[in-house]
Design a protein around this nucleic acid. Structure first.
Lengths: 218, 218, 218, 218
DNA sequence: GATGAATGAGGCTTCATTCAT
DNA sequence: CATGAATGAAGCCTCATTCAT
């Protein structure tokens, strides 16, 4: 309201597993707690008090590290997306044909889901469900970013004749991510099976097959 | 809660275009308003006051027709899904091969989006974003229902050799709906184009192509 | 935050004693309570909960009638000033020489203080003590308004040779109001006596004497 | 609160320009910062964090030198008043007739305002605006003190026939200070002019004229 | 002395829900 | 049926104060 209000933003430009710079331990604890609570209750159900309790810190400390609820949850998004996008990019930059890379991306997403379902839920199940303000912020941009990375792989594949030329890269990319999301949602809600190892494997294979080969025979 | 508290539940078991039984005009107005507000602001952003204002009725009237917010929004879901599922079922029961039917379903979804984006947004963009309590309620069931109808088409197609045998019907169904959703989301957020006629057509064709034929050549 | 938010502003354009139009009784109760609490505890010490309790209404009702705390207290200011300025203007428009009118104004202010000290305290003791946002709002304007009315009387008096020509009207007006305020403050804080009838009379005469004749003899 | 908690109270009994005893430099910085912030935002708007930032010291240091917020602000008051009252007393003890001394006091107040408006604002614009607890404390006493010094000059003047006998010294004193305050307020808020040199001079002359000679001609 | 992370009570505001008319 | 005033629990945020280093 009144004057400027600087904040601690020494969040590490970490890429995959949060290389601890000098980031305060409690800041991290709060962020982790926020991921969990957010994943479980969604944006609006995620109360600061819950996050603080989960993190084992005092209520006010959340506001020591984050301006407000929105910034906190944006940070959660940003961090998760940073990790996720970093991985997609790594795959994109790595070896293999385009189909292999797309397969790798699906596998990666689903594997991460296996070990950190909360994080994935935040990424996939909360995109576009958060208030406009958020969507307009970094979230949408990072989401767009992900679509673009996948689309690039598709495009490159088309140049190398590894992928059908008549496919629209952006739509294919969105479709891939959508199919992934919905399948994982199905996993979470039990529509396509439980969260057992074999179900997950089935989904993994199924999504890749669908996206690569479609449902038509031959 | 206690005893003498009946409610107006003469909601029509309507199926496609709200056949007016004797449903009070204002009840309908409220429901319509709820669809719009819900679509625009999401579950938590959708305040009873907004709905009442949109509907042009008094605050309290909402509570005359609906037990509470949850029931109202469940009704919105239910109605939209009833319509949507009715259409899917009609397609499923109609003529054509399985691929043709799946194509028809995609086209239907996207066409509806063209004329009533709000309704589709409620259906697709709010699935799984609502609180657990809701998800556990009718929503999830109707969502499951949709997946199952699509899966049935797939299964039938497999029996008739119109669809690859090694595809998991449930995953294919979820994938189809997911690709649809995410593409529409992309449309809404501008990632895969604007909401212009040609963009919508491109998405329509793209999603069908992706699901039917996959991205692999040949 | 989100959309527009109309409020009940059927406050009567009353002038002296709040002619009851159709103003809700409870709105008035809240306003009255706010005057008292505000006068006693000042802007920041005036908690909404106190106001509601004093008014005998539920917490939330305050927000039914007023956007927020600031608007409530602005309304308190505005109302008090409306009354006060109306009276000053009536005196200015009435009969009598300029000195008589100035005398009348002092008497009026002090008489009101006798019957409604809380209101006067709000007017005089809280001016310029409230946050800038408020001061920048209607408050300052009404304060300026009061100064100008008094200054006009002075100016008119100068034209009629009833008041010294070399006096700066604005400064004389501000000085008059200031002397009034501080004397009343002294009354309140006990510096120039208690709040007994005779003390008040003494102040009344003293302030008028000071402003009219100064301290110099002859 | 309990026992082993002595505090640094080597505040100098300074009188006019803060004779540096051995007062820690940072304590002084905090006090200075507090004057500024206090003057700008008032009692409640004056946050410890702001003061610390202004002073360029760490948050906690404020609590090293001051028991709590109240003590800090009381110190601000006390210091400012000590200086101000010292000057008034010096004038009172000095040469000149009573009217000359009163004139000198007005000039002094306004001159100080010219060079240190923040300090004067604290003195004049915050008197009686602070919570009761404070008012009951040293503030009120020092304020009373100032009134009494002025009143003494008036009384002495009356004995020497330099001032009208029928004037109530206390009321005249309060009126003088009030006229001063309100004129300065008018200066600050722009009602009686800007804060330009000439406006200040006009106010200076105007207030003295008003208090000495009143508004009546002859 | 000096630092700033940590604490938590307190106050504002929102909004689903009830109820008298 | 219809209205909208009235209620109050719940959650966000601020900020004075403490404390370990």
């Amino acid at each position: 309201m009144s004057s400027s209000r600087e904040r601690h933003d020494r969040r590490p430009p970490s890429a995959l597993r949060a290389i601890d710079d000098g980031e305060p331990e409690k800041r991290r604890a709060i962020l982790h707690a926020a991921v969990r609570v957010f994943a479980e209750k969604g944006y609006h159900g995620c109360r600061i008090a819950d996050v603080a309790r989960q993190a084992g810190v005092a209520y006010g400390l959340v506001y020591h590290y984050f301006q407000n609820k929105e910034e906190l949850l944006e940070s959660v998004f940003a961090e998760q997306w940073t990790i996720f996008i970093g991985a997609l990019q790594a795959i994109s930059d790595g070896p293999g044909t385009a189909p292999e890379q797309l397969t790798g991306m699906c596998h990666f997403a689903i594997d991460v889901f296996r070990t950190a379902p909360a994080a994935v839920r935040v990424l996939l199940l909360e995109v576009a469900r958060t208030p406009n303000s958020l969507r307009a912020g970094s979230t949408r941009q990072t989401f767009e970013h992900a679509v673009r990375i996948v689309a690039d792989v598709v495009r490159r594949g088309q140049e190398r004749e590894e992928i059908r030329r008549d496919v629209d890269p952006l739509i294919a990319a969105a479709g891939l991510l959508g199919a992934l999301e919905m399948s994982l949602t199905g996993l979470v809600t039990g529509v396509v099976g439980g969260e057992r190892e074999e179900d997950i494997e089935r989904v993994k294979k199924g999504v890749v097959d669908l996206v690569l080969g479609g449902v038509l025979p031959g």
